[in-house]
């Protein structure tokens, strides 16, 4: 049952990403507080922050990654398109990191894009991601991946 669910979800994401890119799913926007001085991040820099390899923006400002909830399709799309990692890849990665005492997975926030934007608006250290169609002027977009 678990496998069926995992497979169904991934297939649905793949379908959305590959076949209907201009309909429901526009892309992933990596967002930060509007006061952050960084103007853009590369996928590699975003990946380093979300994998716990970097704890700051390139200019040295503190960066804390914030994840969407486990059942978020935006989360799956973010990891597949930006980090090029599957759920299983990330589980294996964090298992290794946690038990070797080298870090912890990002905090999670349920509530989807609006909840992430609300947190990012209030905290200049947070780095989050939303569906790019949810972006507005209250947050700064540092990377967009179609």
């Amino acid at each position: 049952m678990v496998r069926f669910f995992k497979a169904s979800r991934k297939q649905a994401i793949a379908f959305i990403l590959c076949l209907v890119p201009f309909s429901a799913f526009a892309g992933i926007a990596v967002i930060a507080n509007a006061s952050v001085t960084a103007t853009a991040l590369t996928p590699e820099q975003v990946s380093d922050i979300f994998l716990g390899k970097a704890r700051t923006f390139p200019n040295g400002e503190k960066a804390i990654p914030i994840d969407q909830g486990m059942n978020s399709s935006t989360r799956d799309a973010f990891y597949l398109t930006v980090l090029k990692k599957s759920d299983s890849d990330m589980k294996s990665y964090w298992s290794h990191v946690v038990f070797t005492g080298k870090g912890h997975p990002p905090l999670q926030q349920e509530g989807g894009d609006e909840a992430i934007k609300a947190l990012v608006q209030k905290n200049p250290t947070l780095l989050g991601y939303v569906d790019s169609k949810s972006v507005d002027t209250t947050v700064k977009v540092l990377l967009t991946v179609e």
Binding site: K62, I64, I66, L107, Q108, Q109, A118, L119, K122, N123, P124, T125, L126
Partner: peptide
């Protein structure tokens, strides 16, 4: 998670 996320809202820099 829940408590800490709430804490983040009220602790803007840490």
């Amino acid at each position: 998670h829940a408590a800490l996320i709430l804490g983040l809202v009220y602790l803007p820099t840490s």
